[in-house]
Simulated assay, not measured.
Amino acid sequence: MWGPRMFKEYFQYKGISFPRLIYSERGLREVENEFQVRDDDVFNVTYQKSGTVWMLEILSLIHSNGDPSQCRTVPNWNRGPWYETVMGLQTARSKRPPRLISSHLPIQLFAKSFFRSKAKIFRPYKEPGQLDQFLEQFLEGDVPFGSWFDHVKGWMGLRGHENFFWITYEELQQDLRGSVERICQFLGKSLDARALDGVVENASFQAMKQNKMCNFSLAPRFLLDQTQSSFLRKGITGDWKNQLTTAQSENFDRIYREQMQGLDLSFPWDQPSPQPSPPPTECSDSPPGGS
């Protein structure tokens, strides 16, 4: 959760809001039109606060065959930079292949060169206010990076493409080892049992929460004030039941059904249950200077 020193200036780029501190119109234009995607690039694409850091850690560990050395010595925003940020773009361009790159961008703002490639794709925020206020803005898509619904529907249009893999936070939590095995298969990366053990052990919530290279404790306090809350908080799903009122939950479900109808796709939270778990509605998990 971002602390009280939050930057309140947003700008619009093609109808989507971005915080000005670490993003720029010029940088977004360069990402969209000039960034050259390589066939061996792997993109970690997520909506904000939807498991970005977790997946980045998993992919980093898979790349190192389960060896946690790099994950314990190199900040994650250098291992998998958010390339739409000013500093992240520079880092991504300077990385040696194969590159791991993170992004919160909706599909319509993504690097155009990606769609001609074989690349695989998987505190600069203003005060969100009270939960009811932020929930209303979230449902309207009036938040940084735009609508969750549009983001998901846009990227899910690539379903069936051989270089596109999708997975949910819930699946990672329910079966981390099985999820890692599926990701390895998609990446064409063969890990033995010992290497798989290393990935699973070091990508656990407790391991990541204690790792300064991925828990953002190294971030400048003016960007991320962890005296308010640690960046990696609970590592659970379903906590919305303790936060939303019945009326808020019912309103969320109604809008969710309206927005997602016709997608012909079932998520874990769509399965029959007393109260289906909605997607995350928290502020962004973007890192300093790397997103």
Rank of each mutant, 00 (worst) to 15 (best):
191 L>S: 02
203 A>F: 00
196 L>I: 00
189 K>F: 04
212 K>S: 14
211 N>K: 08
200 V>N: 03
217 S>K: 13
207 A>S: 15
183 I>L: 09
184 C>P: 07
218 L>D: 14
199 V>S: 09
210 Q>V: 01
202 N>V: 00
191 L>Y: 03
211 N>A: 02
204 S>D: 06
217 S>T: 15
210 Q>T: 09
207 A>E: 11
205 F>Y: 10
219 A>C: 10
185 Q>Y: 03
183 I>Q: 11
181 E>D: 09
214 C>A: 11
214 C>I: 11
180 V>I: 08
216 F>N: 14
208 M>F: 10
194 R>E: 15
195 A>T: 07
205 F>H: 08
187 L>F: 03
193 A>Q: 10
215 N>K: 14
187 L>W: 06
211 N>H: 05
197 D>R: 12
179 S>F: 05
178 G>W: 12
199 V>A: 09
202 N>G: 00
187 L>S: 07
211 N>M: 01
211 N>W: 03
210 Q>W: 12
209 K>N: 12
204 S>A: 08
192 D>P: 05
209 K>R: 15
218 L>C: 10
207 A>P: 06
211 N>Y: 06
219 A>P: 05
186 F>N: 04
210 Q>K: 15
209 K>T: 09
185 Q>E: 13
213 M>N: 13
185 Q>M: 06
191 L>A: 02
199 V>K: 12
202 N>T: 01
199 V>G: 08
189 K>T: 07
206 Q>S: 15
180 V>G: 07
178 G>M: 10
182 R>W: 04
200 V>P: 00
210 Q>E: 15
182 R>I: 02
179 S>M: 09
207 A>V: 05
197 D>P: 03
214 C>N: 14
207 A>H: 10
192 D>T: 05
213 M>Q: 15
189 K>E: 09
198 G>Y: 01
219 A>I: 07
207 A>W: 10
182 R>A: 09
201 E>V: 04
191 L>I: 01
196 L>H: 01
214 C>T: 13
190 S>H: 12
197 D>F: 04
194 R>G: 13
218 L>P: 07
203 A>C: 05
193 A>P: 01
186 F>D: 06
211 N>Q: 05
208 M>Y: 10
185 Q>D: 11
180 V>Y: 06
199 V>I: 07
185 Q>T: 07
213 M>D: 09
206 Q>R: 14
192 D>I: 03
202 N>R: 07
194 R>N: 14
195 A>F: 02
179 S>Q: 10
205 F>K: 06
213 M>H: 11
201 E>D: 13
182 R>Y: 05
180 V>C: 11
189 K>C: 08
195 A>Y: 04
216 F>D: 15
201 E>N: 13
199 V>H: 09
216 F>T: 13
184 C>I: 03
184 C>G: 08
200 V>F: 01
191 L>K: 05
183 I>D: 07
195 A>K: 11
185 Q>N: 11
214 C>R: 08
202 N>K: 08
199 V>C: 10
204 S>W: 02
188 G>Y: 04
196 L>P: 00
197 D>W: 02
213 M>E: 13
178 G>T: 07
193 A>G: 03
184 C>Y: 04
197 D>V: 06
193 A>W: 00
191 L>R: 06
196 L>Q: 05
212 K>V: 12
183 I>W: 08
199 V>D: 09
190 S>Y: 03
213 M>V: 02
205 F>V: 01
197 D>E: 15
206 Q>T: 15
197 D>A: 10
198 G>D: 01
